[in-house]
Design a protein around this nucleic acid. Structure first.
Lengths: 189, 189
DNA sequence: GTCTATAGCGGGATAGAC
DNA sequence: GTCTATCCCGCTATAGAC
């Protein structure tokens, strides 16, 4: 990996962290450049506009989630373990002091650059589809016992952990694990 | 109500809408003043700093929720009806094209003015305490059958509808009612 | 690929007239 | 209570040297 692409990757790293900590409106080229010890013109060289940088951050998150799914699949986890692995992703956000992509994108979604809106919708689709498949598989194998359509239940599960991250951030972080346990129990009882 | 306090109220109205649509970073004194046909110095007269305006918006939401609780109590609703009334509050946000206070406050919570952070925590406390009481009452009367502590279940319920509003905003609004129905069914089954 | 320098705009906030 | 005028700052983005 050359020095050039290394800077490009670092910009994405810092940009992602700032985005997840405060949303699209909260960070600037100066925040990123000063964190990397460079000047803001250098950031513009790699990502000419903020819209492109924002879209690139979401696009990378989608690729990362795709690789993550392959790893989980390769482990041969059952549906319960898979869902717990999903909760682990969100627990990492909590420990990093951020919200998740969905939460960071939702606040001013209609005002975001169109290419970011598209990436955000695709990322949501990825998470919803995977969760639905896991819930369906788990119920078929008798590991989950929830009523209704797995598609609707997937929305409930993802909405819950997304909201949990935010409530935990505003009040008490311990709410997260307590409520995740509660959610899991309600599907296995 | 004098003209003066009327302007003050209108500032709060516009400020609240802009805040719920895009978060604290998304709006300015100019947005508010131009929406009201006045100048930004006039807004500063009523709310000298943006932090005070933001705190006042949250404070009014707390008072509104307190009045709402009294109305619901006066109607003599049962626990199921009460929870459905709560969902109605959030459905109104969806129809207004906004997220809820919790979602708007979470994104950059650590960077918010301290007085806003305090009001936000109090507002969260109000919602959590009321929801917990309703869930406890409903289970005692046999209207709900969920496992575990009503306190944890209240966090699950509020996190879910908060997240739902955001997912509905990013993808398909119809997700909201479908998932709310699913959530309700999982507690009554 | 990174720099200096700067354009052009919008942000929060204030002074002082009316 | 609202106005005009202004300050100072930070933002995205670009031009051109190195």
């Amino acid at each position: 990996m050359t020095e050039a692409t290394d800077t490009k990757k670092r910009i994405l790293d810092v940009g992602e962290q700032l985005f997840l900590k405060g949303g699209y409106d909260s960070f600037s080229y100066r925040h990123i450049s000063s964190a990397l010890g460079i000047k803001n013109a250098a950031v513009h060289y790699h990502y000419p506009s903020k819209a492109e940088l924002g879209a690139a951050v979401i696009r990378r998150a989608r690729r990362r989630f795709a690789r993550w799914r392959e790893e989980v699949e390769a482990r041969g986890d059952d549906a319960v373990q898979k869902l717990e692995a999903l909760f682990g992703i969100f627990r990492n956000f909590l420990q990093a002091g951020t919200v998740c992509f969905g939460g960071a994108l939702a606040i001013n979604f209609p005002a975001l650059p169109p290419e970011m809106q598209r990436e955000a919708q695709d990322l949501n689709g990825d998470f919803l589809a995977w969760t639905e498949a896991v819930l369906r598989e788990g119920r078929r194998e008798g590991r989950f016992t929830f009523p209704g359509d797995p598609k609707d239940q997937a929305v409930v599960v993802l909405a819950c952990i997304q909201g949990l991250l935010q409530i935990a951030r505003e009040t008490d972080p311990s709410h997260f694990d307590a409520a995740v346990t509660q959610l899991m129990r309600s599907m296995k009882a």
